[in-house]
Design a binder for these strands. Sequence first.
RNA 1: GGAGGCGUAGCUCAGUCGGUAGAGCAACGGACUUUUAAUCCGUUGGUCCUGGGUUCGAGUCCCAGCGCCUCCA
Length: 499
Amino acid sequence: MSAESPNPNPAPEPTASEHAAVRLEKLHKIEALGIDPWGGRFDGHQPIGTIRELEALPFDDTKPDANPKVIAAGRIVQRRDQGKLFFLDIWDHTGRVQVMLGQKQIGDLGWQLANLLDLGDLIGVEGAFGKTRRGELSIRATKLTILSKSLEPHPTVHFGMEDIEYRLRHRYLDLVHSPDTLTRAKQRVKIIRTMRNYLDGLDFMEVETPTLHAIAGGAAARPFETHHNALDIPLFLRIALELHLKRLLVGGMEKVYEIGRVFRNEGISHKHNPEFTMMELYQAYGDYRSMMDLTEGLIVACVDAIGGGRVRPWADKTVDYSPPFQRARYADLVKEHAGCDMHDPAAVIEAAKKFHLPTAGKEHDVIVNSLFEHCVEDKLVGPVFVHDYPAAICPLTKRQRGDARMAERFELYVHGMELANAYTELNDPLTQEETFKRQLVGMKDEDSMAKMDHDFIRAQRHGMPPAGGLGIGIDRLVMLLTNTQTIRDVILFPLLRPE
RNA sequence: GGAGGCGUAGCUCAGUCGGUAGAGCAACGGACUUUUAAUCCGUUGGUCCUGGGUUCGAGUCCCAGCGCCUCCA
């Protein structure tokens, strides 16, 4: 980093609180005992969830070895001192368990260490597992190891993590203290893994394509700009995976997919994060109808994978993911909700005016689409495949054989959210070149779905197979399946303005 | 981009009409070897988001800014 451009995102200053000072002092006291407060390798511990599954036995003080020995590691989340006996609750991502630290049981040095432990410290314990007199599953520690000292105070168990901003800026604490956050993170992993397994089972090949693009195409979005120093060229972070995956179709990869991050330099909302995860797949010799079947199977597999049935809650409503999903023609929906024939220019303009939508200087299909967005989208409960889109807003899509005004495309909607987008891929480089040019005329870059990409056209000119293509927004899928109304809670570290 | 809401102790929150900055938990000191939101006694802890303004006096009212949230485009 050059001297002229200091780090624009400096980390916030460490807390200069009294709490931090007290903990630092304890750290030094631990060091004075000859103990490394930062721990090290710690072998043999089991997940706490697994330990809890052991059959619980009553303690028998006369035979301390009678109960099974366990080793656990976790974060101290609660502490109840009882004179010369401390009860600690330690937590790991699989559960929580009580630990008993007795002065007699853990020895002199162990007891001195025990007195220097705080909420938030990571410890390892070894001891017999059983129940207390009150019936609480506990590890009666005979050995105590500190694995890491926390120099900052942690939220208390029963009054923590209410403030949304605090949770987002301290996601590591949120994971510990908000069970839903950890559960969602695990469900997200499961959904993505299910998707991979499903596609791998269909002989799709997973690939990785570049994130840095010379031309950011494949979607209508403003890209992030960057610069490569050695080549001295501008580069853009990708806004879609599409154009490289299609090049691979030309290369003979007949079934190909990628799950990866895309970046769009746009506003932030409960449905939008500037970087998000897309799954895109392409299947040679398929079309948008075969994509519908695949989409349905894929989504149902994900629904089944996280359990809880196919009728799932969404806010105060529900969504039924039982196949087959409903199908509806775009034109019929426009007719039903906007009250006009989408192929009748005069009727479309009249309808647009009725809903106070701008029409000046806009192409017919663009007006139709704004009618769709304004009148139809919110009413789509779904899951519903909306199919056969106006061609002009689909520059990468093959036109219908009998009606060039329409494109072979569908989107899958659930409660007004676009969950999937698919089409019969345009593989005719001559038409492709035209639609790229046509999109460019009188349109701002960020509004255009297509930017002239000569390298892509050249690839297509070498013979791209007819194909079906599908894109699924992973974040929105996870939102829907985990009943999470904001994208910030399905992304562990959503973008926030630096403090 | 527009409108509204919120911002007070480490955390969760009160704070009346503008009149000494509060509680619970956490922390600190003490008692306690079967507690479990342990209990009991005592103590500490504040840039009231920031900067202006009005006022004898501002957490409170006004203006501007920052951050987050919600809704709208």
